[in-house]
């Protein structure tokens, strides 16, 4: 009984129950929702936002916030696809490593500014996003790489799927879950992970108990950038085109998903499981508007309301635990 009470108090449980309730309601309105095809599509739609949410989760646990990952993802994606075309590269391993490295470098630049000059993460990442996006569009180009010019290997990779019960489940879902497990292991099973939590909870205390806070900041933002870069290229391989203006406005959805998943914007709190559920909830709400025949101009209003309500609930919860 005690275990059950403990389980009920966790925000993951709350999000899970909300997800379940919404799924049942949507299923009643439109039974087509429960078809394997639709569910698999829903999971597929989780992948990119989910990987980006893992990236934001790491930063948020460290007590920061990152609005630059959409720009980093776009830069990593576009540069890698252009390089693949220029060299006629056939594989996918090297490009993904390349995209991840581009993201990593951008993330380390964020960490440099944030740690060396003690700047506010929001303002640093606003600036770096503008710098990266401006350079990409201004110097590299603005033209979209369409499906006819996309590297075939990348498209083939993005198309790979498993046949389960007559419907196709994208393999990318497993890539996403694999990354989630890795981030979970890092955050909960390694000293580095503990240091990110400690730094987010109270930077000064973390320093005094002997954590290398410089390393912590670099690891958090570097990893976040790397995940964003990887997600960028994966996105291109899944939609078969590379648009340098892509991902505009993603920061809102992703931050909303992470906050929905119970992470605290003040740092020190957050879990991978909660984030996965938060992402699923957000994607569910977005996709269900279409399936429930609500005009999709309402999307922004609904997502905004979800952010406000979710953050109000988390703030209320935090106040209760403090009292």
């Amino acid at each position: 009984m005690n275990h059950l009470a403990k389980l009920m108090r966790r925000s993951e449980t709350a999000v899970f129950l909300i997800v379940l309730a919404i799924m049942i309601v949507i299923g009643l309105i439109n039974p087509a929702f429960w078809q394997a095809d639709n569910l698999f599509n829903l999971l597929r739609a989780n992948v990119i936002i989910g990987i980006m949410a893992l990236s934001v989760l790491i930063v948020m646990v460290s007590g920061g916030i990152d609005v630059s990952f959409p720009a980093f993802a776009a830069a990593a994606m576009y540069l890698t696809v252009l390089a693949m075309n220029a060299y006629g590269h056939e594989g996918v391993l090297l490009p993904f490593i390349g995209a991840t490295l581009i993201g990593l470098l951008c993330g380390l630049a964020n960490a440099f500014f944030i740690h060396t000059f003690r700047m506010i993460p929001l303002i640093v990442t606003l600036g770096s996003a503008s710098v990266v996006r401006g350079l990409l569009l201004g110097l590299v180009g603005t033209s979209i790489v369409n499906i006819d010019r996309m590297p075939p290997a990348l498209i083939a990779f993005g198309r790979s799927s498993l046949e389960i019960g007559g419907a196709k489940l994208s393999v990318m879902v497993f890539v996403y879950l694999g990354l989630a497990v890795l981030v979970w292991l890092l955050l909960t099973r390694t000293m580095t992970g503990r240091s990110i939590f400690a730094y987010g909870d109270d930077a000064e205390s973390a320093k005094r108990v002997g954590f290398n806070t410089r390393r912590t900041v670099y690891v958090a933002y570097g990893l976040a950038g790397a995940l964003a870069g990887f997600a960028g290229l994966l996105h291109a391989s899944m939609i078969w085109l590379a648009n340098p203006r892509d991902f505009v406005g993603y920061e809102l959805d992703v931050i909303a998903a992470v906050v929905l998943g119970g992470a605290s914007i003040f740092g020190g709190r957050g879990s991978v499981l909660g984030t996965l559920l938060g992402v699923f909830l957000l994607v569910l709400i977005k996709n269900s508007l279409i399936i429930m025949r609500i005009d999709n101009t309402w999307q922004g209003v609904v997502i905004g309301c979800v952010i406000v309500v979710a953050t109000a609930l988390t703030a209320w919860r935090d106040r209760k635990t403090l009292a």
Partner: peptide, 10 residues
């Protein structure tokens, strides 16, 4: 961030 999204959505 949330209300900005709501206003733009409206």
């Amino acid at each position: 961030l949330g209300t900005g999204q709501v206003f733009t959505g409206l």
